[in-house]
Design a binder for these strands. Structure first.
Length: 153
DNA sequence: GCCAACGTTGGC
DNA sequence: GCCAACGTTGGC
């Protein structure tokens, strides 16, 4: 089993939206970056554990944990002209982008803020800190445990 | 809202 | 294939 961090903008689709889905399970779609896509398509597997991270908001940080319940499949939004994620170069025969389904398993009482993560020596090599703009990224087991210890519950 | 970092596009 | 122009991300 592998660990991941998925970024979300809470104004668009954040942990609150996921929590409001039936069975707290929803589609993680709209990923339009090749490096993130490759992780999602080739490595993210059913049963993997995911930190949900809120970016572009007042208090950026890790807000909860989800589990991958369905591995990569073609992201339907790429075929939908009404969707902001529509891609005219993608076809059902040659899909370009993928989505996964995740189920919310834990919502932290308090955000684990980026500012706190930055203070941890064990976390200084996190992809989150090294490569700021990657929206799907691997997390090592050591990093996973260190962040869990920062959770207030 | 600003701006640095970095990804993508397209002319040549 | 290079690289300038442009667009997006995301912390602050």
């Amino acid at each position: 089993m592998q660990y991941w961090l998925f970024k979300a903008e809470p104004d668009v689709f954040g942990i609150e939206h996921l929590a409001a889905q039936p069975k707290k399970t929803g589609r993680w779609d709209g990923i339009r970056n090749y490096q993130a896509r490759n992780f999602l398509r080739d490595q993210v597997a059913k049963g993997d554990a995911v930190f949900i991270y809120h970016s572009h908001c007042k208090q950026p940080g890790v807000v909860g944990i989800a589990e991958v319940v369905k591995a990569a499949y073609p992201d339907p939004t790429q075929f939908d002209p009404q969707s902001p994620y529509f891609d005219s170069k993608a076809t059902p025969d040659l899909p370009r982008w993928v989505a996964v389904d995740i189920k919310l398993t834990s919502q932290f009482k308090q955000v684990i803020p980026l500012s706190l993560i930055k203070q941890q020596t064990v976390l200084e090599n996190m992809v989150l800190l090294k490569q700021a703009r990657l929206s799907i990224q691997p997390v090592s087991e050591q990093e996973w445990q260190a962040i869990l210890q920062l959770a207030d519950n």
